[in-house]
Amino acid sequence: MAVDRLIHEPARLAIMTNLFVVESANATYLLQQTGLTWGNLGSHLSKLEEARYVDVVKGYNGKQPQTTISLTPQGRNALEAYREHLLAALAPLSE
């Protein structure tokens, strides 16, 4: 049973789970929630965006640049599938 290695990486899992519980968020929010550095966050978001798990929209909030990030439906499904895989893989331990 293959675990989604893109989500399995702890930093990306933290990003995905934090995005899962909101409709969308900006980069500062993700930084505070995950404790990552800007560079780390940028790098992981690029990978998730490539896989179409997240949408990254750059715009402006007044005069300030703002990056809005959200999970795509594909990303939400991938995270739910990942969760089910893990639960199935670890289920025998509870017996």
Partner: peptide, 14 residues
């Protein structure tokens, strides 16, 4: 809040 916590749109439950 914006400069320190960022911003988010809450999910359906919230």
């Amino acid at each position: 809040l914006r400069s320190r916590l960022g911003e988010f749109k809450p999910g359906p439950r919230r």
